[in-house]
Amino acid sequence: MEKGLNITTEFTSGLQILFNNIKKHKVVLPETENPWTLGMLLFWIKDNILVDKDKCDLFMKGNTVRPGIIVAVNDQDWELLGDLKYCIKNNDNITFISTLHGG
C-alpha cells in the first residue's frame, strides 16, 4: 500500500460547530493495509478531528452518517460512488453537508 493520502474534508451548514467552527480541514490519512474507504474515514474523523466526542451522535449513527447529512466526494454524490464502500483517492475533496434543523 502506498503512503498516506492527502485529502480535504469540509463540514458545512451547521456541521462545523462540531469541528471547532472550522469548515475546511486538510488531513493526511496514515498508511493502512486495506485501501481507505469512506466508511473507514468516518470513524477516523470521529477519532481524530471531532472535537466534542459526546456529540458524536450528531454526526454518526451506527456505522454511517446520521440521516439528513449529505456526503459528496469532489462534488459528486456518494450514492453514485458506492456509499461507504467508496475507495478514497489522493486529493479527494469530501464534503459533509447537514440538512438538519439548526445543525
Partner: peptide, 20 residues
C-alpha cells in the same frame, strides 16, 4: 445543499435553541 455546493455558496452559522 447541492445548489449551494455547486455555486460555492458559503453559509453562516445559524443556530436556534435546538442546535446540538
Amino acid at each position: 445543499s447541492y445548489y449551494a455546493l455547486f455555486n460555492k455558496l458559503d453559509d453562516f452559522m445559524h443556530s436556534n435553541f435546538l442546535t446540538a
